[in-house]
Design a protein around this nucleic acid. Structure first.
Lengths: 233, 233
DNA sequence: CCAATAGTGTCTCTAAGACAGTATGTT
DNA sequence: AACATACTGTCTTAGAGACACTATTGG
């Protein structure tokens, strides 16, 4: 019952895949590494977990420090990455997470940071994927897999919509995340039928016919999530 | 770029929640701890990750060492548990996993081990839940949450059925895992409609009318899993 | 013959998906 | 007036769920 072990200990890092939808495209936040190893390569934001904090807290902290972007909601698990040799510095295990960032944040990051939003397509296609540090390309794919599962099993709106939005905007987000198109009438029927949207006063300011504005009803939304009601458009 | 860090390192453990269905009840495999801390309390099988192995490999190895039960399939993620103070010995972070064990294994464990199968109800209800070491009761609940999600999104059969089985047995497993009953005709229609079962020759040996035997068609099963087809009975 | 379990078919209802035209604003 | 986008309803089809009786074996 001593506080030391005969076993060697790994270094523990926390990495975070941050998604957003911007201009109809699913994007992820990457940083260009300023030091070795993989200096100059693209990587997920992240860093070492400090004693006294949880791994998820470290992921939030490091993401904010490195990129200036705040995380809207509690990040979700994206696996434990412990393949020997995944980090040339030695035994480094990473706890990965993923989360959404609302689109307002896309233009609000700290200017001095090395963070950049890259479309998911660009990040995962050659040759950019080869430019990714460590096993981060694998983590990115796993995060996307979990994102799509999450998007299909419940409304994802809270996590990446602005506080007030139009139904067309909401549809565009779903189309970007799931890489498919929806029929406008069917989409509206389904979404409104969930009963989690609240009609807001006012109209969108646009160049053509203004659209009605909506927001999420937090209470009904949580109710729906906890009951685990399916959500297949 | 040295191989040492200014940061302290956590000890890393891997814990594994092993489920089975036995006698119509969902059960989990627990071990009674033989040493401090929490000596004499119930805990999940698990132990320290060694350098050169992945966390999931450690979970498989430790489970087998501690309990004698082999794991049928690759364990799935059950989160990273890193709350400060969760282990009185110091900074100990646990990577948790969950998996199924086919029912044949229930009677096949090593006799000398301190492992025992406990129904999920018993393990999670008071007062047994208070007898659980560390934060393992939380890990157990999280594993069950993930199990039910998995059971609803695809056929779980491969992972915990014997190689040949009857439709009634399969239904009993689903009912035990999901804590609900199914109509026999609807269940059969749905399962057979998936096209992943292969009719086997021979009949069940029983005391009444013998039932037809089935096995899983591995190829069609994997096809179904990869396509992510829903599975809501 | 009786007990026990295996096995089978129909109806209803809900929800997804396909489909085209009208309404309302801006310039 | 022309243009751009918002908004709306019906039909078809697939699948979930409720429901009760017959078939086959062992004792």
């Amino acid at each position: 019952m001593s506080s030391t072990y005969k076993y060697q200990r790994p270094a523990l890092t926390a990495d975070c895949v941050l998604f957003t939808v911007d201009g109809g495209a699913l994007k992820v936040l990457l940083v260009r590494r300023g030091r070795e190893p993989y200096k100059g390569k693209l990587a997920l934001p992240g860093g070492f977990v400090k004693r006294g904090e949880t791994a998820v807290a470290a992921a939030i902290r490091e993401s904010r420090e490195e990129t200036g972007y705040g995380i809207a909601e509690r990040p979700e698990d994206c696996g434990i990455w412990s393949e020997p040799g995944r980090d040339p510095r030695g035994w480094v295990v990473s706890a990965a997470f993923w989360s959404f960032v609302p689109p307002e944040a896309v233009t609000g990051g700290s200017d001095a940071s090395a963070a950049l939003w890259v479309t998911f397509d660009e990040a995962t296609d050659e040759p950019a994927a080869d430019e990714m540090a460590f096993d981060h390309i694998d983590i990115l794919w796993e995060a996307y897999r979990r994102l799509t599962i999450s998007a299909r099993s419940g409304p994802i709106g809270f996590r990446l919509m602005p506080s007030v939005f139009t139904l067309t905007q909401l549809q565009e987000v779903y189309e970007a995340v799931l890489f498919r198109k929806f029929d406008k009438r069917n989409f509206r029927r389904k979404i409104l039928g969930l009963g989690v949207l609240r009609r807001e006063n006012g109209k969108q300011k646009g160049h053509q016919r203004p659209a009605a504005l909506y927001s999420f009803d937090h209470e009904k939304y949580e109710n729906l999530r906890s009951k685990g009601i399916g959500f297949e458009i």
